[in-house]
Amino acid sequence: MHTRKHILVIGGGVAGMESAIHLCDMGYEVTLIEKQDQLGGHVLKWDFLFPDHRPAYEITNELCPAVEEKATIKLQTEVKNIVRQNGHFEVALSDGEKLTADALLVATGFDLFDAHKKEEYGYGIYDNVITAAELEERFQNKIPIRTAAGKKPARVGFVHCVGSRDEKVGNEYCSKVCCVTAVKQAMRVRESLPGCEVFCFYMDLRMFGRYFEDLYREAQEKWGVQFIRGRLSEAAEDIDQRIIVKLEDTLAGRPLRMAVDLLVLLTGFVPSEGTRRMATMLNLPLGNDRFIKPSDEHLRRNLTPVPGVFVTGASAGPRSISESISDARAAALEIAAWFNNSSQHAI
């Protein structure tokens, strides 16, 4: 290697950071740009992680300093324009800087589904309907779980699949991590509010990961979380600002109606604004779910059909943190392999 290859990693969440670290370790020159003023992405907003309840900051505490030490970090920076020239990418950044990269790694991730779009669930209309992200923020900031009126909730409901598996909002896919997140949060609510009844309203419980099933069992066994199989049809508000939920208990085969003091919506993943922009800018193919589609879903999960452009993390579909981290390492290897192949061809 006569000159060090330069890789631009776009997005400073766990996937971007992990890839950057490994690419640096392999001897590449890496610039990582992040539009926020801090590295970490969504993980910064999580209090603790499934399935083992470890604090989320442990992840960022390890990744952030490592990447800061090894790579060039540019915060509050976005890509303005990319031009492909003689096998290089001429990239214009939002701060006016122009840089040349030999490869691009798209790690722009996801956004959470905007719960306003499910009007029948009353988010933004009823004060006691919140999202799982908002609940997590309360956990993180040690704010006690209270209703809008400041009362201790006697009943909390979790609604699975909000904005996922729903053709009415145009998202037909499963967001994968909401089920286990609901279980994780339900347990925490029960833990912090003894005596509070917790209900999960689900269509299917997709406990796909290792230990997830244990979590499900523990939620029932130890914490008494109740699982009701039925997708929420609608929510209303009573005069005490309690949320009346309506659904069919499909296992009992009868309509079910109950009041909860707090309703938590497990909003799913949508491609982030950055992911959509990168896909448009680089002309990357998208799957039906509008996330970036890699060249091969089994063998080339980080490669895109555009030479020199790679993808990792949740820009290529809903993923958990641990999956994103593994995927980020795979992306680093994929990039290295691509450089090796192309340099051989060059000789």
Binding site: D204, G230, R231, L232, S233, K246, E248, T250, P255
Partner: peptide
């Protein structure tokens, strides 16, 4: 149909009689 029950939960008639 994936049997989520959204239909049965919202049904106007189901509040009066068994129908899903």
């Amino acid at each position: 149909c994936m049997a989520c029950g959204s239909c049965g939960g919202t049904c106007t008639a189901a509040q009066f009689e068994p129908v899903s």
